[in-house]
Design a protein around this nucleic acid. Structure first.
Lengths: 144, 144
DNA sequence: CCTTGTCGTAACCGATTTGGTTACAGTCGC
DNA sequence: GCGACTGTAACCAAATCGGTTACGACAAGG
């Protein structure tokens, strides 16, 4: 489906920050990029979207870095999804169908209902998992 | 999200064929393209995928065209989705994360669980709507 | 005040996907 | 054999994605 990895990267970043903040150090895009194994600019772009959504904040100047603005248990995957994804899951026709045809004029409202239900359900599911849950999952997996 | 319109187009095509077959005529890519308002080749590509999934069949030669192989009430949107979409909804990292980091090694299994649940739920929802339902929706909307 | 480390962006790149288009060979009923 | 339609290959412009380089903005610490 040509899906992107934005949600995955953003979740990775926030989870990493949650784990790191316990050590008291400052999270920089360079250190995060080490864990994600990508370019620091990619991380900064991601963090920029998360900041626009109010999930993180940045301190500039020397000794700068990033900080979570909420408790990991208060950040759901839906928050992250909304911060980094925009469009709908399924697109309608690229160019409008023939509205003179019953199917052409009726298929879009009909699918609208289905698609809306799908998206509502997706949001409900993403809301059920928090960054703290991911952290717990990782720690639990490490132990057992 | 850069979503594509494949599911929409395929649903449009099948719904159009369901409505058309009541008239007894043969469905051709040209006539379908009129309703979708796109190039007939786009329709043939779509129908080719639907044929590979066993949802339609083609007759070649003179007076050729396409036919549904199942009753519209027996074709769910999940069948259509599977016929025209391939990859997962959410992708993992484009390049693997640092497995030496606890988060890098644990985030993928953790997200795997979430993503699997999301996809299972998506399938459940798509299975709940059939081409016949779309047709009914369109006819009902036309009336009321 | 000036060095230093980091943020914040712009600009560009190659690869891939998407919808669209042209062209043409294959097929078969009439 | 004619004609109509399928089935594909080939190509295109636009958009997206992840990645990369480059550089200005900024502020803390010496």
């Amino acid at each position: 489906m040509s899906a992107n990895s934005r949600l995955t990267i953003a979740a990775h970043v926030l989870t990493w920050m949650s784990m790191d903040q316990q050590g008291g150090r400052v999270a920089t895009s360079d250190r995060i990029a080490e864990s994600v194994q990508t370019n620091p600019v990619v991380i900064r772009r991601c963090l920029g979207e998360l900041r626009a959504a109010g999930l993180v904040e940045a301190r500039r100047g020397a000794g700068a870095g990033w900080r979570l603005t909420r408790e990991p248990a208060d950040v759901t995957l839906l928050d992250v999804y909304r911060a980094v994804e925009d469009g709908p899951l399924f697109a309608m026709h690229a160019t409008p169908p023939n509205l003179g045809c019953p199917v052409g004029s009726g298929i879009r409202p009909a699918l609208d209902g289905v698609y809306a239900g799908v998206e509502a359900n997706l949001q409900k599911q993403l809301r059920a998992t928090t960054i703290a849950d991911l952290l717990d999952d990782i720690n639990g997996r490490k132990m057992g």
